[in-house]
């Protein structure tokens, strides 16, 4: 198992990669967070939901990849397919999310819940949780860097622990997002957030489809 030195390395790697994590999750987190209600409590709930499932996504992906013997370094063609597929899914979920915001009851008596994008049984599924899961498995550059290092470890438990500590350190960079709770929400802010979400979704869809079709985005 990893000693304190290894865990320290994971933590430092996470801290150093934090800005890149925030940058790559920003287009998903910021508009969807702004589209939720105001108040730091609700925003903290959004973030814990998002980060919780992002963590699950990390571990799931790492475990599956380890079992398949291709931890984070799948062949480029496979990686492009995974990347493209996740992009398409993110695009679809963001569009669904933007659509669901329009159906949220804004009446004073309504509870201040997170936006849900679907129903399982009687309960809604939090959009934040779905987005967290998808960004968790989206093979972003910091994730790949951590994966490459974890791949050198001797067993799956050590690799998962490495990922867990890496995740905790990157999460510190997400804490300032709670501050978005202070942004006053009115119809205009929600409209802007929703429209931004649609634009980001369209980009993800286009980029995802291009990747699945084996096309380069530029040139």
């Amino acid at each position: 198992m990893g000693g304190p030195f290894l865990l320290g390395e994971a933590f430092l790697l996470g801290l150093a990669s934090g800005p890149a994590c925030v940058a790559s999750c920003g287009p998903v987190v910021v508009p969807s967070l702004l589209a939720e209600g105001a108040g730091w409590r609700l925003n903290a709930r959004y973030l814990s939901s998002f980060l919780g499932t992002r963590f699950v996504g990390y571990l799931l992906f790492a475990a599956v990849a380890w079992e398949l013997g291709a931890l984070v370094s799948p062949p480029p063609a496979v990686r492009t397919l995974i990347y493209g597929g996740i992009h398409v899914l993110l695009g679809v979920v963001l569009l669904w999310y933007a659509h669901s915001i329009g159906r949220v009851c804004t009446h004073a008596c309504a509870g201040s819940g997170l936006v849900s994008i679907g129903r399982v049984g009687k309960r809604g599924v939090s959009g934040a949780a779905v987005l967290g899961l998808l960004t968790g498995v989206s093979l972003c550059p910091p994730f790949v860097a951590a994966g490459l290092r974890a791949a050198q470890l001797s067993n799956i438990a050590a690799a998962l622990l490495f990922f867990a500590v890496f995740f905790v350190a990157t999460t510190l960079w997400f804490v300032p997002f709670v501050g978005l709770g202070c942004v006053r929400r009115n119809a205009s802010v929600i409209f802007v957030a929703r429209t931004a979400m649609i634009l980001v979704a369209l980009y993800y869809l286009l980029a995802g489809v291009a990747m699945l079709a084996g096309r380069r985005i530029y040139g």
């Binding site: 940058a23 790559s24 920003g26 287009p27 910021v30 508009p31 702004l34 409209f191 802007v192 957030a193 929703r194 429209t195 931004a196 979400m197 649609i198 634009l199 980001v200 980009y203």
Partner: peptide, 14 residues
């Protein structure tokens, strides 16, 4: 335009 600004600032960073 504000939505375009928000989306493009975030995408440019990502």
């Amino acid at each position: 335009p504000w939505a375009v600004l928000l989306a493009m600032v975030l995408l440019s960073l990502a």
